[in-house]
């Protein structure tokens, strides 16, 4: 449920690293004459390349400008991924009824779920929830801090069978996918 850019960063950085290694090896290889004995003494801008660009300037420069613009857009998308919050914002739930539709605020739903978890299970010290999706299919990101000497399986069981069941009934949603993130806390750290 978390939408950290960790995987994206890793993939892009690996790509850039491989590209840098390839450029480095290629440059050193040309300087050392690995590919052709004449290359080390040739200018950095090879005459053949300069001639090719000059002959095809009618399409080369527009394509180069377009490629730069695409790279710019991709870089901006990458930058945007860094600035996004790790948890999604709550979305309002729209429930269709015979005469129209009922809109329930996502923040209110998330607050109700959080309050239900903290008030109905003693060993839960703190909780926070995010509710996203549609009335037909809802995703819940539930973060729960539990006293470490509590029976964690009991806490999980009560969240699954009682709290989430109550939530589904109240929100009139049949399909709910929950991402439950448990954190252990020292007992008695927080007074409810």
């Amino acid at each position: 449920m978390r939408r950290d850019p960790d995987r994206l960063n890793r993939a892009v950085l690996i790509l850039l690293a491989v590209a840098a290694i390839a450029v480095g090896v290629w440059g050193v290889g040309r300087a050392a004459g690995w590919f052709d004995d004449r290359h080390p003494d040739q200018p950095l801008l090879l005459p053949s390349v300069a001639d090719y660009v000059a002959r095809n300037s009618h399409w080369f420069w527009p394509v180069a400008a377009a490629a730069s613009a695409v790279v710019c857009l991709l870089a901006l998308a990458w930058l945007r991924a860094q600035l996004r919050l790790p948890r999604p914002a709550n979305t309002d739930l729209v429930i269709p009824v015979t005469d129209g539709q009922i809109r329930v605020q996502g923040d209110a739903l998330a607050d109700a779920l959080r309050d239900d978890v903290t008030s109905s299970i003693d060993s839960v010290e703190r909780a926070s929830a995010r509710v996203t999706g549609y009335s037909s299919e809802l995703d819940i990101d539930l973060r729960v801090e539990v006293e470490e000497d509590a029976d964690l399986n009991d806490v999980r069981g009560r969240i699954e069978s009682e709290v989430l069941a109550r939530f589904s009934r109240a929100a009139c949603v049949t399909q709910v996918t929950t991402y439950l993130d448990l954190r252990l806390q020292p007992s008695g750290r927080h007074v409810k």
Binding site: R10, A17, V18, A20, I21, G24, W26, R30, A31, L44
Partner: peptide
């Protein structure tokens, strides 16, 4: 057009680019 592939500054630049790539790859 003045620099050649075997110029010291060019070789050093390519070596630095390659080393930076290796370090970044190891980190990832």
């Amino acid at each position: 057009r003045e620099l050649t592939w075997s110029d010291r500054s060019v070789v050093i630049t390519f070596v630095l680019v390659g080393v930076a790539g290796i370090l970044l790859l190891v980190l990832q």
